[in-house]
Structures are given as C-alpha cells and as structure tokens.
C-alpha cells in the first residue's frame, strides 16, 4: 500500500480552548472517511503528538460532515498568556497532523 501524508486524503482545522487544542479532520471522500474512522484513532493521534500533547486525546465522530474531531488535553504549554511556546493556541496542530504518514489503499487516493 502506498505511504502518503494525511494531507493528501484529508483537510484539517485546529484551535484552542484553555490548555487543550482540538483538531477537526475532514475526509476528502466517504470511502476515506470510513478508512480514517478505522485507522485514525485517538491513541494513534496521541502517539503522533506524543512530544506536544501531555494529556488524553478524545475522538468524536461526525459522519454527516465526513469528519473526526480530536481534543488534545494539556497540549499548549499552559495555554493563554501562561504559555511561552510559539503556538500557544494550537493553530498549527491541524497542519502538523496532516504531515503524519499513513499506508493508504491505492484505490482511495484522489
């Protein structure tokens, strides 16, 4: 199976709430949504963000929007004005997740 970055088959938007960030992932097709629902689990995203996210990752499903929503707790270095890191609002978390690599069945690729 071809190894591609997530950005090839999905879009993402991320933001903050206190010291947590969320990443919304949108599958580019219904078949990709089913694939991501199986493969892109909370623990997988937790592992990808192991050096950034110090807390739990919770995943929510939005099949109507072909989307998954991940909430990453304790991922912003304290959040708000406490945080000294360059991205205290998790603005880049979505773009970062899109760089993870996955083995994707060739027929799913756009």
């Amino acid at each position: 199976m071809p190894r591609v970055v997530l950005g090839k088959i999905a879009l993402a938007r991320s933001g903050d709430k206190g010291n947590s960030s969320n990443i919304g992932v949108i599958a580019r097709t219904p078949a990709i949504y089913e694939f991501l629902r199986r493969e892109l689990t909370g623990p997988v995203v937790r592992e990808v963000f192991r050096e950034i996210c110090k807390g739990e990752v919770t995943r929510y499903e939005l099949p109507n929007l072909l989307s998954l929503n991940f909430v990453l707790r304790d991922s912003l270095g304290g959040g708000g004005t406490r945080s000294l890191i360059t991205d205290p609002q998790g603005k880049v978390h979505g773009a970062a997740l899109l760089h993870m690599e996955l083995e994707v069945p060739a027929e799913l690729l756009p």
Partner: peptide
Amino acid sequence: IHTVTSQLLYELGDPE
C-alpha cells in the same frame, strides 16, 4: 463544503 466544514470544526469539543 470544505471551507464551511472547516469552520464548523473550529474550537469544537463534543459535537453532540
């Protein structure tokens, strides 16, 4: 649909 869905997901917690 993609620009609008992106914003639906912005700063979202439990969608239900």
